[in-house]
Amino acid sequence: MLDSDNAAFILTGVSISLASCNPGRLPSMSRGLGCKLIDDGRQVTIFLRRSQSEALLENIRSSGGRVANVFSLPSSNRTLQLKGSNARIVPFAAEDIAVIDGHIADFVLEVVPLGMSEAVVRAILAYQPDDLVSVVYSPSAAFSQTPGPKAGAPLG
């Protein structure tokens, strides 16, 4: 589902957002602090702050793991949406802190040249290690959402 180009893309300094809906179709979403690919790229792990994601995590549980996940690179507007229907919430693995810190560093390098305040960016992505949680899913669909006439086109 995820070709090597898009697999590499989501590991760069992209902004990450994850959403899921409650039984009444009301969605909730949170910013991701980074991601990693596991299972030979067949599964995506997104790192979230539990304190910011209570409704999202509840929606993931109640919807049977239906998620929408967007990755967007501010400097190019390149945007990718993945969807999954088997998302599960797993404890955060301490060794993944390095992935998060690497992602934050990449994101700062991406947006500070665009005029963003580094202090603000770091506040947006600030975390407490014991607040972290991981969501793992297998992408079942991918869409280009780069703005333009082809936005929304399915990939792969």
């Binding site: 809906c21 979403m29 919807s63 929408a68 967007v70 229907s85 005029g115």
Partner: peptide, 22 residues
């Protein structure tokens, strides 16, 4: 519009959708 908003919606089957807003 300095930091784009994120808009989340849901289709009739309960599949979420997420997009960035200008």
């Amino acid at each position: 519009g300095v930091i784009p908003g994120h808009i989340a919606t849901c289709d009739a089957e309960g599949i979420p959708n997420l997009a960035y807003l200008s």
